[in-house]
Amino acid sequence: MKNRKRKRFVRITVSVVIICLLLFFLQRLMMPKYSVGTQDGAMIAEYYDDEPKHNLIIIGDSEMYENISPLVLWQNYGINTYIRGSAQQLIWQSYYILEDTLRHETPEVVIVNISSMQYSEPQKETYNRMTLEGLRWSTSKVKAIYASMTEEESFMEYVFPLLRYHSRWNDLSADDFRLMFHEEPVSLNGYMMQVGVKPAENIPDGIPLADYTFGDIDYEYLDKITALCKEHGVELVLMKGPSLYPYWYEEWDEQMKDYAAEHNVVYLNCVNKEEIGLDFSTDTFDGGLHLNVEGAEIYSDYLGEWLQDNIGISDLSSDSALSRAWKTKADAYEAKKSEKYKELSD
C-alpha cells in the first residue's frame, strides 16, 4: 500500500516537473528577442551584467539612451556611467527603475529625464513591455507593472509571458532558438549608437494647450524620486535632453525650474543650449529628435564638464579595474561604430 502511494507521488512529481520545464522552455522560446528585433527593449536587462560601481546613473527614454555616450564621459572625465533607458519611459517607471538600481548600488549622481512629465497615463503596451520585462523581479517591478498597465493588460501576463506571447509561434525564427537563454548585448553601458545624418528642418511649434500643468501623478512620482535620492544621499539632476521634438513648452520649463528651486535639486534644460555646440544640420540622424554618434559625443563632452563644474562628480580614472573594463568597452564601441558606418554605406 505504502509502495503504491509512493510510486504515485513520484509519478505526479515527475509529471509536474516535466510540464513546468516544458512550459519554461516554451516561454523562453516565444518571448521576443530584443537583441535582434526592437533593440530599445533590451537595455533595462543589460544593466545587471555590468559591475555596479557607477558614479553616474542616467534614467529616462530615448532622449537619454540615444543621446549620451558613456564612453566619452569615461574617457574625458573619468565618470563611470550607466544609462537605464527604455522607449518612452514614463516618470513612474523611472522611479521604480531608480528604486531597483539603488538595491544594487548607490551612485553619486542620478540624472532623470523629465520629458516624461508630459504623460499622465500609460501610453502603450509595447512600451510598457520594453521597460518592464527587463527588470528583475522585486517589489519595485510588481509596483511598476501595476502602475503602468493599460486596460487591456493583465499582471499574470507579466508573470507568465507565455500567456501574452503564445501567438508568436508562427513568427518564430532561428534567432528565437539561438537566443533562448542568452541575448547579445545591444548597448554600451545603456547607450544605443546611431549613425547617419538627417538635418533638423521644419520642426513644428507646439500645439497650444488649454492647460500646461503637469499631472498630479507626475508630480507624485517626481516627489518620490526626489525623496529617494535624498534618503540615499544621491545628488539628483533633472534634465531635459537636447532633442528638438517633441516640443518642450516654455510653460513646462518654468514648472521644472520652480520645482527644482522649491525642492533644492538641480534642473538642466539642454534644448537649444548654444554652449553645448550641437549643430542640428549634421549631429542628428532623424531630423532633430535624437543625436547621431557625433552629436552624442559632443553632448556627452558638454555634460561631463557640466557635471564636474556644477556637481563636483568624482573622476574615477585612477581605478585600474574600471580602466581595464573601459578599455575593452572602448574597443567594442569603435568596432560597433565601424560596423554601423559600413552598414550605412552599403
Binding site: 516535466i18 521576443p32 528585433g37 503596451e125
Partner: peptide, 28 residues
Amino acid sequence: KKLIGLLLTMLCVVSLAACGGGNSEGGN
C-alpha cells in the same frame, strides 16, 4: 501513457491558446 497524454493535452491547450486573438509582440 499517462505522461504522454498529459503532455499532449498541455500542447493542445497551448496551441489552442495560440489561435486566440492578440498581437504577437507586446501589442505592437
